[in-house]
Design a protein around this nucleic acid. Structure first.
Length: 277
DNA sequence: ACCCAGGAAATTC
DNA sequence: GAATTTCATGGG
């Protein structure tokens, strides 16, 4: 990936297969805010930046030179999504259509702890409210950045809190799940870095030891927080979508990039609810 | 008032 | 074990 590192800005030249809205506002991440001019502003890994895509060049405004690798990893710039789309498109015309509908989706390499918490919060919830709870979580317990934003609170920080301390979040029954997750991660019972490297079924079992983490939340944490691209979160939308759009396919049929296929199908299905009436 | 929301735990059968 | 109910909260 060709890139240019400036003072307080990083530019990646000729980025293909990326659309900021499709990637940052498709339900895998909940903390990016679109600006009036189409830029996205947000915080990841405790760094607050503005992201701009212009004529195929990706600008990380506010990005420090030493974070060059961090941001190219975050946007998964080393993976050839064009090749993956061609591979998936050969499997089924439906997959081809879904990929063509949102060709700029990428799977972010988010912080594993933030992704785990985000999808614990996501259960039996809707996206606007998920965003609100996460925003309050950061404002109440994260650290203020130099630019006025708030970082995502660490497991160590949350592990020192009680369920009542989380009441300002208005997260309902999920508060006790967040505390349980923070304690298990903070004390070392579960190392997310270790889970990331485990065989996939072992990784799933480890995450599901956390209260409030079942098959779907574990799958999301693995796909969006640990870049396990074979993972395939099955929510109510995906069950309907698979039954109606790809009835003869199993997850295994979709191969090692099933998670990417899942994002194309999920987005396509959410945008075409009439298909399932 | 009623319904649902990128589910999982608790309870019941 | 598989099916049903409960769990908090907010928006439509």
């Amino acid at each position: 990936m060709e890139c240019e590192v400036l003072e307080n800005e990083i530019v990646y030249r000729g980025v293909a297969d990326l659309n900021l809205g499709q990637t940052l506002d498709c339900g895998q991440s909940f903390r990016w805010e679109e600006q009036e001019n189409g830029d996205f502003r947000g915080i990841a890994f405790d760094r607050e930046i503005t992201v701009r895509l212009k004529r195929g060049d990706l600008y990380i405004i506010g990005g420090k030179a030493e974070d060059n690798r961090l941001w190219s990893d975050y946007f998964d710039l080393d993976l050839d999504y064009g090749a993956i789309k061609r591979e998936l498109s050969k499997l089924s015309p439906v997959l081809k259509s879904a990929a063509e509908y949102a060709p700029g989706i990428r799977i972010l390499r988010q912080d594993s702890w933030e992704a785990l918490c985000s999808f614990i919060i996501s259960q039996n919830n809707n996206i606007p409210r998920i965003k609100g709870i996460i925003k309050r979580l950061c404002e109440c317990f994260g650290d203020k950045t130099a630019d006025g934003g708030y970082t995502f609170p660490s497991a160590d920080k949350l592990s020192g809190l009680s369920v009542e301390d989380l009441s300002p979040l208005r997260s309902g029954f999920r508060a006790k799940y967040l505390i349980d997750a923070s304690q298990r991660v903070s004390c070392g019972e579960i190392s997310l870095d270790d889970v990331q490297k485990m065989p996939i079924d072992e990784a799933r079992q480890s995450l599901m030891k956390i209260k409030g983490v079942g098959p779907k939340v574990a799958e999301c944490a693995l796909l969006y927080g640990m870049h396990r691209l074979e993972c395939f979160p099955m929510d109510v939308w995906m069950k309907r979508a698979m039954a109606v759009l790809l009835p003869e396919f199993t997850i295994e049929d979709l191969g090692r990039y099933a998670g990417i296929a899942q994002q194309y199908i999920f987005h396509y299905s959410r945008m075409h609810p009439e298909l399932f009436e």
